[in-house]
Design a protein around this nucleic acid. Structure first.
Lengths: 158, 158
DNA sequence: CTCACTATCTATAACAA
DNA sequence: TTTGTTATAGATAGTGA
């Protein structure tokens, strides 16, 4: 699939590895998206980058996947029981995060109208980036939790 | 990628759709596996077939994905013995998150009524520190929540 | 990181069993 | 539904900004 055939084994060069990861992750997401659209299926992907950062993807949306675990869906054989208390914990975490995001945005706006210095804006950007990571963290955690509570079929390659 | 180009839209013929799903899901799993091996990443996939059946795949294993939340990296040791007291821990962590959010709100309010001075940086540092703490708490909460789960059963599909 | 380029390799659409 | 074949469409390795 490239200029040269490669073996499926750890890419030793760290920089090349990251580039490969970036490209292939995008490709994986597209494949998941295509599969979902072509076949009216739901696909969720979660994982960790080589650097340990969590990432998640959902098609049509991540919620569309997790919601089936949470509430089941019409026309489908019942998806078992899920304890509401635990779901609320997850929802609460997500809400806290949403609230935090709003707060930060307001802080940002406030600063913008307060003769901000360049340094301030930089700091805010960093903070916002951290927030974004947090969201990814929660999303991945939520999905994994939902999964874990509902045993599913695992398929092995090979 | 086939004899003919197709649009990415629902395959109307149901039989063809299922064949497509079956093949593309395999392809997706392989892509996930390759990505995981090539880049030393962890990838988990979950979803529902057109027929509503759940499916999942993990590389290197599904547990390897979830374990990052448990132990940060390798190790799948003591996840079997879950203590009932965990709920208390979860609630406690959730409360801490709420408190942190309140703190941030106060920081925000403080800013709003404050004349922009060099104190801005101080406030920003507070926010950043709070965020860092939040991050840690969320990860801890996630881990505890994960601990509360049932083991993912590895069984053959269908 | 991300984007562009493009020669090659890979996945798969259409068929068939 | 699953598997195999084959012609093509699509993904990407290597490289450079």
């Amino acid at each position: 699939m490239g200029r040269k055939k490669i073996e499926i084994e750890l890419v030793d060069n760290k920089k090349a590895r990251n580039v490969t990861f970036s490209k292939r992750r995008s490709g994986l997401f597209k494949k998941a998206s295509d599969l979902s659209i072509l076949c009216n299926a739901r696909v969720g992907i979660v994982g960790f980058t080589p650097g340990g950062k969590p990432f998640a993807f959902g098609s049509p949306t991540f919620e569309a996947v997790t919601n089936v675990y949470l509430h089941g869906e019409e026309g489908e054989s019942s998806r078992k029981n899920v304890k509401p208390s635990r779901n609320q914990n997850i929802n609460k975490l997500n809400k806290e995060l949403s609230d935090l995001t709003e707060e930060l945005e307001e802080v940002d706006k406030g600063k913008a109208s307060m003769v901000p210095t360049d340094l301030d804006l930089e700091e805010l950007l960093k903070v916002k980036t951290s927030l974004k990571d947090l969201h990814g963290n929660i999303e991945a955690a939520s999905s994994l939790l939902l999964l874990a509570k509902n045993p599913v079929h695992i398929i092995d390659l090979d």
